[in-house]
Design a protein around this nucleic acid. Structure first.
Lengths: 149, 149
DNA sequence: TTAGATGCAAAGACTTTGCGCACTT
DNA sequence: AAGTGCGCAAAGTCTTTGCATCTAA
């Protein structure tokens, strides 16, 4: 099952448009991001990239992710874990991480509309809806906690 | 201007209640946290502690913060920066970090009530209101961006 | 051709851990 | 007296950087 390359082409165009060079490493990182269902840590991206292009080094992956972020192609968030996670901009928006099982679910930005409006009104703060990442307890773990205290 | 020690005593009690030992280092960390107006990084806490007790080492501060967290006396959050920040549990709740100037403002938990209810209803997710930390652009930087693009 | 991109290795920032001595209880 | 907690130093993670080489344009 091959991923559609349309999004990869978009990324390539954006890179070219920014007068940056299009390299194999960049193409591969783009491909991994497009193929990913959710968010990935830099390390996960590196491993996936190296399955296809073993010579690509972790530092290159970091540099590419940094470039993609500057071009607003990619967004990253600090979940409650140590490592940051990355995903394509516009793909998904909010992260809910469970403190008990560590699982993260992703939710549409719409859920932050009211909060966003409130923060703007009350504090003049413009919420970056790509970055919202909150922690708590997921449904399953709430049940688990009740049954086994 | 000396800080009231009531909260410090509370912390000391909790430590004792957990059959842990009350040490000078713990007392000093507690004092720093009580005296702090907002959140502090582990490094800031260490520096403040060392002003009063120069022999206390950073690793001890980390160990104490870990213990205080386990006792639910302290809460930490990962802002958009690298280092985690700590503050007393129950003191403050939400963090809004500006991506442009790096400043963080703290807001009452009440602002997350609606979001909290929505997440519970829609995803069965119980928001941990101590951990909410979002990023965006603060009021001043929004104005600055408009005037100097 | 030539400036930007890469690989490698080393450094950096933040945090954790191992060990023997000190201090709380 | 007994054993937790501490300081020190070293190790561990995740990320960034320096430099010589390679390569896309």
């Amino acid at each position: 099952m091959v991923e559609p390359t349309g999004h990869v082409d978009d990324i390539v165009s954006a890179v070219r448009g920014a007068a940056k060079r299009v390299t194999v490493a960049k193409r591969t990182v783009a491909d991994v991001l497009v193929g990913a269902t959710g968010h990935l840590t830099a390390d996960e991206i590196t491993q996936e990239v190296q399955k296809r292009q073993p010579e690509v080094s972790p530092s290159t992956v970091y540099r590419i992710l940094e470039e993609f972020e500057a071009l607003q192609l990619v967004v990253h968030a600090h979940l409650d874990q140590h490592a940051a996670v990355y995903h394509l901009a516009g793909a998904v928006h909010g992260h809910l991480t469970c403190e008990m099982c560590g699982d993260t679910i992703e939710i549409p930005a719409a859920h932050f509309d009211a909060l966003s409006k409130d923060l703007q009104k009350t504090f003049g703060f413009l919420l970056d809806r790509h970055h919202v990442a909150v922690t708590g307890t997921c449904h399953d773990c709430q049940r688990r906690r009740r049954s086994a205290p």
